[in-house]
């Protein structure tokens, strides 16, 4: 367990709501409420969930863009809350991110070379020529020609821009890249290229990914392990292929049922969830999924299930699988 690159333990992030500058907050949104996972070196962990489930907040915590309310994030064995200023800078160099929208993630007024070089200049003392050399390497790494460095982002298509964003994320001996819906904004015919590129880069560089998406098929394709999130909590974690073959948690089952067929005659177990994700401001008592769950038992509305090992490497938070 300690050989992992990133270890997140019982991470919580609560946001006060309704308070003004002087007034007291009226409530608390538990955006992330006790999440634990690990990512090994060179591994991809997929994080799936619907909007508002807390996956974006989780990514912000991992990126040290937000401070957790409770819990720890350990990177290479050290808690990032205890890092000195200089070590935190080093952490920021090693953990980078690729966002969903490649049109918003590249500054329109900077040349591509400067965009990619920005993190390098912030973290390493290299000469101008060395920086240029690194930029050339990176551009080739993501399948673009070196003379792209002189151009502005608007001269590139969406897929090429996403390649540039990936090159930037890899510019500083990066160990972990948070991929926040990296292909959702791209044209269908371009997505496969980016997914393949990410897989190739992982094999070559041994970099780890935290792959966040709502498209189960894409997540399961890219990641070795997949974690399913609902209302700030992980409900199921396991090997991607096993998870796809036999989802355990009713919410995971519903997600799979809802993901669209890949051809017209594919038959699916139809689990149509009633209602919508409840507000995180007042989550239901007990298991937060029980109001929508087709298998809910009396116990589910009283006692919160814990994330327990159901089979080796497979953890589920559901009373259906916990010995009573």
């Amino acid at each position: 367990m300690d050989s992992s690159l990133l270890a997140v333990r019982d991470l919580r992030k609560h946001f006060p709501v309704g308070g003004s500058l002087f007034g007291k907050a009226r409530g608390v949104v538990k955006a992330v409420d006790g999440v634990s996972f690990t990512i090994g070196s060179g591994e991809t962990l997929g994080l799936v969930g619907e909007s508002g489930c807390g996956k974006t907040t989780t990514s912000k915590l991992v990126l040290a863009a937000e401070e957790p309310t409770a819990g720890t994030i350990e990177f290479e064995g050290r808690n990032i809350a205890d890092l000195s200023r200089a070590d935190l800078q080093d952490y920021r160099a090693k953990v980078q991110v690729v966002f969903q929208d490649p049109y918003s993630s590249l500054s329109p007024r900077m040349r591509v070379g400067d965009i990619i070089a920005e993190p390098i200049k912030a973290h390493e003392a290299l000469s101008a020529a060395e920086v240029r050399g690194r930029v050339t390497e990176l551009l080739e790494l993501v399948g673009l020609r070196p003379d792209a460095a002189r151009l502005f982002p608007h001269e590139f298509s969406g897929g090429q821009r996403q390649r540039l964003a990936i090159a930037r994320a890899l510019s500083t001996r990066t160990r972990l890249v948070v991929l926040d819906e990296p292909v959702s904004a791209l044209d269908v015919s371009i997505r496969a290229h980016i997914i393949t590129l990410l897989e190739e880069l992982q094999q070559r560089l041994g970099v780890s990914y935290l792959f966040i998406a709502h498209d189960l098929a894409a997540v399961a394709h890219v990641s070795q392990r997949t974690a399913v999130m609902y209302l700030g909590k992980l409900v199921e974690v396991g090997d991607s292929l096993e998870l796809c073959a036999g989802p355990l948690h009713p919410y995971t089952k519903a997600l799979f049922a809802a993901s669209l067929p890949s051809h017209p005659d594919e038959s699916r177990e139809e689990i149509v969830l009633s209602g919508e994700v409840p507000s995180a401001l007042s989550p239901p008592r007990g298991c937060s999924f029980h109001p929508r769950c087709p298998f809910a038992m009396p116990r589910c509305s009283e006692q919160e299930p814990r994330l327990l090992e159901a089979s080796p490497g497979r953890r589920v938070a559901c009373h259906l699988y916990s010995a009573s």
Binding site: G159, I190, R191, A192, I195, T196, H221, C244, A245
Partner: peptide
């Protein structure tokens, strides 16, 4: 055909086909 081959299918880890070039 290329579009169909470029979509990841649930639970199958085949390499995806990428359509070369730009729209």
């Amino acid at each position: 055909k290329a579009l169909l081959d470029s979509i990841p299918k649930l639970g199958v880890r085949q390499p995806l086909y990428g359509i070369p070039g730009q729209p």
